[in-house]
Design a protein around this nucleic acid. Structure first.
Lengths: 165, 165
DNA sequence: TATTGTTATACTCTATAACTATA
DNA sequence: TATAGTTATAGAGTATAACAATA
């Protein structure tokens, strides 16, 4: 593929400095920059509620339903199973999640949210959602709809394995 | 435990797991997932060419024009000035970049690409661009145009300060 | 023999402080 | 006094190996 592809992209100069002749910035660089801005904007909201990013990721996953065991939970959120241990210890000590002996396999523990955990997640998520609305404020409704429809197709989420609570 | 257990909630199953009632996934989570997929896809392309991600970031910035000094270079790519040292040492040892005494300020060094550095960057960038084309293959032309127009607006790049070569 | 939860260890990445030479 | 480049050190984050209990 050559420079002629600029026809279905953006061939214009967006004022981001001297053009190096390649037409547009790397997709990875652009996505990374947006991601970093969102992470930076989420950081204070999480800190206010005493959560780290990984803890929030765990709560978000568990909000979909109980995880059958810690290993699948770790795989689904792409976190090391070894680091998940202390993280769950902390969340459980704070009464946000519970580990229960697995029904079939005595080695494993199902992990699920407590009422307090579900409430905290809902509160933080609402704050994050409000921040995101501001983040997307510059887009008109059609653009916003297009973006929200596109993103899941570019990186589909793995179907979580849900256990009985 | 049958898969049909997931149907008991909303009845909707779009492949993204049980709905937790909040409508859509966090924007940050979606962007982070896309970014990770792109980074993972770039990794082998960079490794084949003996570059780390940060080294490629430096080359990409310098492809826009020489940096007036290392400090502004570090700030523009959001990298620690202390870690930039060894990184530039390496790139210079390999003949990809050159540090030249600053014209006005004798403390500073301009940083610019050598011909070899420019060639390597162009080669790697072409490989990455080809990968990106595959990555966006699932989108129709209108969606692709919309996405590429949106991204720079969601996280504008800082205008780089360009020095004379 | 393989897997789940766990601990311990080693390694990488990142952040901070401090030094030098110039300004 | 402040800044550009550099070095050294401490800390956080991450990966790997190994172990006990169970399958």
């Amino acid at each position: 593929m050559s420079e002629a592809d600029r026809e279905d992209g953006t061939g214009r100069d967006d004022g981001a400095g001297r053009d190096d002749g390649t037409g547009r910035e790397d997709l990875g660089a652009m996505f990374a920059r947006v991601t970093r801005r969102l992470v930076d904007a989420e950081a204070p909201l999480l800190a206010e509620n005493g959560l780290t990013m990984w803890e929030y990721v765990v709560l978000s996953r568990l909000a979909l339903g109980a995880a059958p065991n810690q290993l699948t939970l770790a795989r689904e959120i792409r976190h090391d199973k070894t680091r998940l241990i202390k993280l769950l210890d902390d969340l459980q000590r704070r009464g946000l999640v519970v580990r229960r002996p697995g029904a079939a396999d005595r080695r494993s523990y199902t992990v699920s949210l407590t009422d307090a955990g579900r409430a905290l997640h809902a509160r933080v998520r609402a704050a994050i959602r409000a921040m995101e609305d501001g983040f997307l404020a510059g887009l008109d409704p059609a653009e916003r709809r297009s973006l929200l429809a596109l993103l899941p197709r570019l990186a589909p989420r793995e179907t979580p394995e849900i256990a009985e609570d």
